[in-house]
Write a protein that binds this DNA or RNA. Structure first.
Lengths: 171, 171
DNA sequence: TATTGTTATACTCTATAACTATA
DNA sequence: TATAGTTATAGAGTATAACAATA
């Protein structure tokens, strides 16, 4: 490895390799999953995330802000996506009784049906691509490591952090 | 819908958790890295990838097709990005002497300088976000697992695989 | 004054298809 | 006929800023 890859400052070659592997794996996975969601349900990944979140939540209702918090979007981006889902009858939007400023998003039956129809194949793709070459030990290790990294990232605002909503305690 | 997370068909809850963790980690990492590359060098991640690839290759030259093979783009997408880099004087494009159909892309000194200027902080961000919460054992495990998954994914075309270039031996 | 959400707008990126030229 | 690349075009998605309404 001496001649081909010059040492990247701050990362040794093993770290660099792991970084690239992570990048490529998630990129390929994303690509495959996107394609499936679009062809099977005419959904972008973001739309799928929104619906899936709503389906997983008791009552199937969330405020726009809560949704925006989960997905990394700008408010306007979420409004745009919610508009598309609304137009297709997969969600409804109505003002919150508690706080007239807020908008409550609710999955419709059609939205639930769509997720139910799409999810099995989605999961199957993920299983086949990501988990097939792993044994139980691998899975446990990966979970532990990525879980820790996720916590770390959540607590490490990217240097110029706008103090948004109230994210954990990071501020 | 029994409890909070209903079991996703095809994925057990540990797999589901690992999948979400992977998604979120790479998404947050991507976000942070994108932001840095744009503010520090006015580069999108794709443009950075193109330049970095060229810098890493002896001679700093690659054919368009070779570049397109690395990045997942369509040819036209690559042409577009290369056009932007060309316009900024970071690469040059010239017909190949061997094959008049091909275009050889070459990094300019300005391109090298830009990468050299941007790379240290890029690496530092990655190190801080991704590797800080890992010990040597974690890194080794992650590398091994992701490396295996990557091989598996490369060899597993997403069901409707166009027989492109000549990718490994998959097709 | 701060928060929630929408709208208008402008921009980036990506893909498809048609096209040129070389092999 | 197949390959390499460009161009035209059209569409999706995102962010910013201005805005309205409520707390």
């Amino acid at each position: 490895m001496a001649g081909v890859t010059d040492p990247t400052p701050g990362l040794n070659s093993e770290q660099l390799g792991a970084y690239f592997a992570l990048t490529e794996v998630s990129s390929l996975l994303q690509y495959a999953v996107d394609e499936h969601l679009r062809s099977a349900g005419d959904l972008s990944y973001v739309q799928f995330q929104i619906l899936a979140r709503l389906v997983h939540v008791p009552g199937g209702k969330l405020r726009m802000t809560d949704l925006a918090d989960g997905v990394v979007y700008s408010r306007s981006g979420l409004t745009y996506q919610a508009g598309l889902l609304d137009k297709r009858g997969l969600i409804t939007r109505s003002p919150s009784p508690d706080d007239e400023r807020s908008v409550i998003v609710t999955v419709t039956d059609a939205g639930r049906d769509l997720i139910a129809r799409v999810l099995p194949e989605h999961a199957e793709r993920v299983r086949q691509l990501l988990f097939e070459p792993m044994n139980g030990q691998d899975l446990a290790a990966l979970s532990a490591i990525l879980g820790r990294v996720r916590e770390h990232m959540r607590a490490t605002p990217p240097r110029s952090a706008k103090p948004r909503a109230a994210r954990g305690r990071g501020n």
